[in-house]
């Protein structure tokens, strides 16, 4: 956890980046909407390294969501190269992609997407079940992760017994529990009030400082400014890509 870098203007530290995690080059994505063909991405190239804290921004229709789905291995490109930690995922089958998502990617959704009838603990345990870990290991790791996001006391609560901020913490714990290469957060504060939103962004900051790689997709400038680098999309192309100033 050592860092020799000087804090920036806001007193934040920026960790040195590690090896390449995501390597996207010349990616396009076409959708058919009835008879109309929509060019969601028109040739996007982006490299993301370990220990980065990246925000993807853009107005609706910019291809932001498509790029996020691509980064999260939920979708594959129509053309172009996509390598995830050196593995070519552009042409993988459904189940191979599922395994990548399980091991390498932690999703945080705007609407939390918790299983309503399962406890916080069971929700966090879910990715570990899909990873094939035995119950004892699962329980221990899920409990530890919930503890780390400050929900050690509420493990046996169901989502409807938790506040919005707490629900998002459960979702973040679920994203973290399998030690993924990247955390992919889609409008993580979109359904929260601003005070809770600030708390959640503070949690992301903390996670980043602990060595996690975080990608936040947002349309809010304030949220994007928490990151160290912002990629802006417009009309399926990258408009700008650079550090937060």
């Amino acid at each position: 956890m050592s860092t020799s870098l000087a804090p920036d203007f806001a007193g934040r530290i920026t960790r040195p980046v590690g090896p390449l995690v995501i390597d996207i080059a010349g990616v396009t994505k076409l959708y058919k909407m009835g008879t109309e063909i929509i060019h969601a991405l028109r040739g996007v190239s982006v490299e993301i390294r370990r220990n980065e804290y990246l925000a993807i921004m853009g107005p609706s229709g910019s291809g932001k969501s498509t790029l996020m789905n691509m980064l999260g291995c939920l979708d594959t490109p129509t053309a172009g190269r996509y390598e995830f930690t050196g593995k070519n995922v552009a042409h993988m089958e459904d189940d191979e992609l599922a395994d990548i998502r399980n091991r390498e990617i932690g999703f945080v959704f705007q609407t939390f997407n918790l299983l309503p009838r399962s406890t916080a603990l069971a929700n966090v345990e879910l990715p570990l079940i899909y990873a094939g870990l035995p119950p004892s290991v699962r329980l221990e790791r899920a409990a530890q992760t919930l503890h780390n996001v400050g929900l050690g006391e509420r493990m046996m609560h169901k989502p409807n017994e938790l506040s919005g901020g707490q629900r998002q913490r459960v979702a973040i714990a679920r994203a973290l529990v399998n030690n993924p290469s990247i955390i992919l957060a889609d409008e993580p504060t979109g359904n929260l009030d601003s005070k809770t939103g600030v708390e959640i962004m503070a949690l992301f900051e903390q996670l980043y400082e602990q060595g996690n790689t975080i990608i936040v997709v947002t349309h809010e400038e304030d949220i994007a400014r928490h990151a160290r680098r912002i990629v802006r999309l417009r009309d399926g192309l990258i408009e700008s890509d650079g550090p937060v100033v």
């Binding site: 939920l74 998502r101 997407n113 879910l126 899909y130 990873a131 679920r174």
Partner: peptide
């Protein structure tokens, strides 16, 4: 459907 999507995002295979 949304739960299925979530489960798939978390690594559930088709078989699951």
């Amino acid at each position: 459907t949304k739960e299925i999507g979530t489960r798939k995002a978390l690594g559930a295979r088709r078989r699951t």
